[in-house]
Design a binder for these strands. Structure first.
Lengths: 192, 192
DNA sequence: AAGTAAACCTAACATACATCAAGCATTTTT
DNA sequence: AAAAATGCTTGATGTATGTTAGGTTTACTT
């Protein structure tokens, strides 16, 4: 039962069977069809979600209706409006399934309880968050430093499995450029 | 002794006096003069640093010698080359004092030990890292979304204490634009 | 199977920002 | 106190990316 997430947590920490069992008991399974919304602005966000299968995007719509993708998630990733989740604020993001997807939701209160009962999970999530923090820092450094073409190539290198599954439109949104610009970049790189 | 950091950790978690004492015993005091380097590329980074007083910048020099500031730190902030620190890799960043500064260094091994002995510190650093993670996400969303002028105004609003203490050159580096462009932005905003 | 929507590409033009260069003011160094 | 370095501003010019528009192909919907 839920071998994906068991493998995922066991990679980082050595849990006892009973601890894993307790963790699993907290999860709720969610099925989403393509284009279905998991979170929309003003929702209260009580869950973070582990992706068992499928592909999703987290994005923000600005005042002028432009879409800005902050995160993709495929198998083995966590996704949520983390700002809303951790700070108990209303959502600002949309989270939408790009493909039919299966998720495991973890409720914030259940998570707090779990931290108290089994501090190893506090450790697990500290390590996960630390890794995420570090990789956001490199993403910022990259946007400060690199040309759009370089960032596009890096994206393809770093996330080949995502690049194959989302449209160029999505990738352009993620990189912070217009789809037309990405098309030009791809033309110059001879990638069509 | 070290009232600043005691206040800092007590704001988040209720520690016993003995726990605080143990924590304090792990810290080493570092004094830096203006322009002195705390970390330079290829250093091994065994410490993260709490700023007691002063002001520092963490930056990357790219191949063409451009400087990109990823973080400022003033009183009450933590600073390090976190990627190098957490992943035990050689540093890629410079960390330099903008003013004479006093720091408290926390060694990675001491920190690991502390986590084992007092899990509340694991909790403390999980919460700190989570907050940092969330604010990096908004920083990314902001660079995807907003004009340079808007980002400059946001910076001034969000970090008035930093804005007062660093040069416009530094702020431009942080925002990812040229100092000349920032000067023009300020002119249009009538801020000289 | 036909109709519609979405994805992708291309081109012409507009614009924000970078680049290069110079000058003045302020701070730091000697 | 003089000299040097740094910070800030301004102008002229270049370039990458945005904007608008149109067209082709592919995928989805009925």
């Amino acid at each position: 039962m839920y071998p994906e997430i068991i493998k995922h947590i066991s990679q980082e920490i050595d849990f006892k069977a009973s601890e894993i069992e307790e963790f699993i008991s907290l999860l709720s399974e969610i099925h989403l069809s393509k284009k279905e919304l998991l979170i929309r602005p003003n929702d209260s966000v009580n869950y973070e979600y582990f992706v068992v299968s499928g592909c999703l995007k987290a994005y923000y719509l600005d005042e002028s209706g432009e879409r800005h993708i902050i995160q993709f998630a495929i198998e083995d990733w966590w996704i949520s409006d983390f700002e809303a989740f951790f700070n108990k604020e209303p959502a600002k993001l949309y989270i939408e399934a790009i493909e039919d997807s299966v998720l495991l939701g973890l409720h914030c209160d259940a998570l707090e309880e779990l931290f108290k009962r089994i501090p190893k999970f506090e450790r697990f999530f500290r390590i996960k968050t630390t890794n995420a923090f570090v990789s956001l820092r490199s993403r910022i450094l990259e946007t400060l430093q690199k040309s759009s073409a370089e960032r596009y190539l890096n994206f393809c290198n770093k996330y080949p499995n995502i690049e194959k599954r989302v449209t160029n439109h999505h990738i352009a949104n993620y990189l912070g450029i217009q789809p037309e610009s990405l098309s030009r970049i791809r033309k110059e790189l001879l990638l069509h």
